[in-house]
Design a protein around this nucleic acid. Sequence first.
DNA 1: CTGAAAGCGCTTACAG
DNA 2: CTGAAAGCGCTTACAG
Lengths: 340, 340
Amino acid sequence: MSSPSRPTLKSVAAHAGVSVTTTADILRATPEQLSRYHADTVAKVRDSAAALHYQPNRLAAALVSGRSRTVMLLMERAYEPYFARVARAMETLVRDAGYEMFVVDAAHFQTGRRGLWPVDGILAVEGEAWQEVALQLRPQVDTPLVSLGTCGIAGYDQVRIDLPAAMAAAARHLIAQGAQNILYLDQQPLSAPNLAATYLDPFKAAAAAIKKARRSLVRLATTQPTAAAAKTVLLDYLQQQPRPDAILCRTDDLALGASSALLEHGLTPGREVLLVGCNGMEELAFYNPPLSTLAFPVEAMCAAAWEMMQQRLDQPGQPPQRLDLSIPLVVRMSSSQALK
Amino acid sequence: MSSPSRPTLKSVAAHAGVSVTTTADILRATPEQLSRYHADTVAKVRDSAAALHYQPNRLAAALVSGRSRTVMLLMERAYEPYFARVARAMETLVRDAGYEMFVVDAAHFQTGRRGLWPVDGILAVEGEAWQEVALQLRPQVDTPLVSLGTCGIAGYDQVRIDLPAAMAAAARHLIAQGAQNILYLDQQPLSAPNLAATYLDPFKAAAAAIKKARRSLVRLATTQPTAAAAKTVLLDYLQQQPRPDAILCRTDDLALGASSALLEHGLTPGREVLLVGCNGMEELAFYNPPLSTLAFPVEAMCAAAWEMMQQRLDQPGQPPQRLDLSIPLVVRMSSSQALK
DNA sequence: CTGAAAGCGCTTACAG
DNA sequence: CTGAAAGCGCTTACAG
């Protein structure tokens, strides 16, 4: 122990000349609770803590209380733009409520020999592929779990956004704009077994709308969820097949790649080929041309999920809740004849 | 305690019929260390742990050992694209070394009544504005601190990327392409007192290069670090002032906004006005036109910083290290006459 | 090779 | 209003 060890409750108590219990109580007390103590005891304790630069050790507090005041945000690709946006929105809510938030990338996850940091609750984003992981990560079998996104985990609280309905609406929009031959561009699922809600259902919904209007549909998939992959795949397609007059993309990144491919092929999005993305990243408003997109209600989704989490932390026994949110389509030049 | 409590070392030991010490040792042991134990003891312990689904409690392990095997990644705007990219690169390195990583947004940071999660080390990105915070966040006064980015914290390990030199090179590139009147677009520092290395020095370096070549320079600043803010500010400027023939931006987000403003004003980036961004986000290759940018060596920077951190964790007494990395300019259509 | 005991820094009943 | 004591689930000397 050569390092200058930091002050503990014990040393603060000794310095103040009161017991450890009193010290701890006073340092944790809210203003109302504080009135129970003699003013000079409070002063002594506070001065002592300030003088020693005391900072409580969360490790010890969490160990003994069994509550970490920390939640985990579990996501499949935590650092991609859409997920980073979710993380930002969620962190604001969580912090304001006095909790900490750990972001865990499910792709990096593995239960190692060292075990996990216990958390009071798990917020799982797009958890379909990670249901197993999310359930496994819980420190207790009754640790609250709230899922948010296009899919949910049965038997737990869920905030769902209805991507199939939104994709159908986007398809109808393209049809209304005159599209005859529609290309649906999405990514091959990374590793997951059952991704119906995330990949298959949205496609099916768009396909149903397109079939109903008797337009043609082709599905094209990339191996990576990147603009680069989308560009490559689409350029290849354009060189070999008759060109579509509308492209509906599963993510904004794919839409950016598609836009670049079209331009390189001499086609302007919104003129020869309509183009719609999905996720609602703000950047799309500044592209050339600006791209239409399905604007995921990230803030509302996160607010609802955090509300559910707080309710469950307070009342663990409540039946699971479910909330469904719709996804509005933001129409820009890439898909509207009228905006030209 | 109505919740089904999870298994502890004690319960695993009881189940296996051996002591807690032996149980803990065997579960933590590497293959070599394992040979010290009787094979059947090992088997009993492992079977017992597996049967009970034992997961060690990191809280307790960290509390008693004084090592959390966790590092903090401290950033000013943790969820913006550039910082998210740093987080992704760093997490891969950290995980592979058997550590966990917490991302902490310095903007959200406040030493609350609850204290902080102790970490073994702090990786501070663009820490100039957050030197105080970073130093304050250390659980111990000797907690390792490594800074990375355009600035560093004196007296600690640093991986620096030389943005002033890169900005000067970018300015010379614009001049070589024929620019006479250059606009430098950056953001007002958010909240910070001294941000020389992050904001002032890069500008000064560009200004010196421009002055040396006897070209004119105007500096324009946004209040927000967003494409939207850049677009507004630049459109406003273009309506009132003679137009520049080159724009050098402090970030890629600003460059995207600038590109959109130029187009809306009837000017094409790379034709009437040259445009260069800064950060090296991959998306810029897919913009229309593709944007030139200073490609921050994120992977190399993170690898070097993590290497430094590991060395310091092993040998706390070493003198502080410093590594400087250069930032290459990636030239695309937005700033090259030759590429048209 | 295995085990009993002390202790990390807190919180939580329980006394006085 | 204040304090002594037990204990959270581990790791770490130290014995045997």
